Amino acid sequence: MTATLSSRKKARPASDTRAELIRIGSDIIAHKGFNSTGINVVLKEAGVPKGSFYYYFSSKEDFGLAVIDDFAAEYDAQLDLTLGNPDLLPLERIRRYLRTAIDDMEACDNSRGCLVGNLGQELAGQNESFRLRIDAIFSSWQARVTRCLVEAQEQGYVDPAADPAALAQLLQMGWQGATLRAKVSKSVEPMQRFKRMYFEQILGVKN
């Protein structure tokens, strides 16, 4: 059976439909978690027929990995404006990155946090594919911070005896914890406190 002209006009390109499923899925997963998100809910919200899901994704796991990759790509673009901004001094890039995260948390009323971090807590112990993908993303983000700290060290802003990679890992681990605490307490104060302590007590510079 062929589609009528009118139905063709209404139909979305496959790439648009896939992107819309990922967008809606990301929003629902951010609020409910992956395990509690039903595919039927995503399809209904997107207005996509139930049988169409497996045209775009081979499984719910495949869908979840696509959601993670989409979030990571979007987040990388944001990091280009902060950690990758050559017009800012290296430590100011890190400050800008943390301030942006705090602003984003306030904008969502402390309800979402980092999607990759949330899914890491939920799924890393359950699914090896998710664990490996999330670990690779965290490593990529950590490498960006490391490059900033290496540059800051070369410019004399960071102790020459310090290990930039270890400092970057500490920032990432502490920031994930501060973000989780902000969600639980419904306040960005834990994030602000960690930011201040990291610069003043770990790096030894003014926040």
Results as ranks from 00 to 15, higher is better:
2 T>Y: 12
7 S>V: 11
9 K>A: 11
10 K>A: 12
10 K>V: 03
11 A>P: 05
18 R>A: 12
18 R>F: 04
18 R>K: 15
19 A>K: 12
20 E>L: 11
23 R>D: 14
23 R>F: 06
27 D>Y: 01
27 D>V: 07
32 K>Q: 09
32 K>P: 06
34 F>S: 14
35 N>D: 14
37 T>S: 09
39 I>E: 02
41 V>W: 05
45 E>S: 10
50 K>F: 05
53 F>L: 07
53 F>M: 10
61 E>W: 01
61 E>N: 14
63 F>H: 10
64 G>D: 04
66 A>L: 03
67 V>H: 04
68 I>F: 01
68 I>W: 00
69 D>R: 15
71 F>D: 14
71 F>G: 10
75 Y>T: 13
77 A>D: 14
82 T>G: 07
89 L>F: 05
90 P>Y: 01
95 R>G: 08
95 R>T: 10
96 R>L: 11
96 R>D: 10
100 T>C: 02
109 D>S: 13
111 S>W: 00
112 R>P: 09
116 V>H: 13
116 V>S: 15
116 V>G: 14
118 N>S: 15
118 N>Y: 03
119 L>A: 07
124 A>Y: 03
127 N>M: 01
128 E>Q: 11
128 E>H: 07
131 R>P: 03
132 L>K: 13
133 R>T: 10
135 D>F: 11
136 A>N: 10
138 F>C: 09
144 R>C: 08
148 C>K: 08
149 L>K: 03
152 A>W: 02
153 Q>E: 06
155 Q>D: 11
160 P>S: 09
162 A>Q: 11
168 A>F: 06
169 Q>E: 11
172 Q>L: 15
174 G>L: 04
179 T>Y: 04
179 T>L: 06
180 L>T: 13
183 K>T: 12
185 S>P: 05
188 V>H: 03
189 E>K: 13
193 R>M: 11
194 F>V: 02
195 K>A: 14
199 F>M: 09
200 E>I: 08
204 G>C: 01
205 V>N: 01
207 N>H: 03
207 N>A: 12
